[in-house]
Design a protein around this nucleic acid. Sequence first.
DNA 1: ATTTCTGCAAAACCTTTGCAAGCCG
DNA 2: CGGCTTGCAAAGGTTTTGCAGAAAT
Lengths: 145, 145
Amino acid sequence: MISMQAEEQSTFRELCEQRGIAVTHQRQVLYEVMRAAGGHPSPEEVYARVRERIPTISLATVYKNIHLFVESGVLREVSLHHGSVRVEMAGEQHHHVVCSRCKSISDIEERELGPMPRRERLAGGFLVERYAIDVIGLCANCQKN
Amino acid sequence: MISMQAEEQSTFRELCEQRGIAVTHQRQVLYEVMRAAGGHPSPEEVYARVRERIPTISLATVYKNIHLFVESGVLREVSLHHGSVRVEMAGEQHHHVVCSRCKSISDIEERELGPMPRRERLAGGFLVERYAIDVIGLCANCQKN
DNA sequence: ATTTCTGCAAAACCTTTGCAAGCCG
DNA sequence: CGGCTTGCAAAGGTTTTGCAGAAAT
């Protein structure tokens, strides 16, 4: 029987080879921590968990590798980060189309999206105020490159 | 004929009275700028526009009033800001339930949401990678308060 | 008259960067 | 080895905070 650990390691090694990045101890542990922990950790939380196994790792390395993994499609951001907060008038009935490459945001009307979730209450008693949909992909311009 | 300006001002005054906040010149101009400009400005961009009409306004005031307006439901954040980046394993097929009060994030399976947008290409040639849905509302706990 | 708000400056965060030393292929 | 990666420390950018004076109710 192949251990979980060994299986993960070989998977991770292949994954790095595909992406053309070096297999370092730090990256391996960061990857394992993310798989094991689940949830939606911040870089600081990831740092804390990785540090349990590599006490000398630096926060900068965690940031660098989180970026690398996001660019490689191993990780993704829970809410897209545009460098600073962006606001709009509430009550505008539209959703957002966001280019994952150039980060541009444009609006899309709800009716253009077709079918939409409509539930007003979720299991556990959560009371829905609204659905915010981000359509994530490549804008016409970024597809060219 | 009542001018647009006058109409907006009375609307804004009522709005402040409802929310129990003072009607200041700064807030009035910030509100008008947001209505007129549209789009998804950052605080710096809002600051720049307001400063055209109130050259002495401070960036801190812009931030304070953006927050106030977000809390009052006049404005909303385009992508929810959790204080720092949050990441998760890519490829997990779920969406997010976010409490607008306590900012907690939990996962929800796509099948629990019911109907979903499915379009793979949008007008203008945008190529869809995925739909990211945030269900925004009040968690059971925050409804009590 | 009170309470709330503004502007300033400093502080607090979060994130990125430059570089010398170390590790991977 | 040669190039990529790490850890450190410093810098950069955004957002928040405390407070005295000004404005709103």
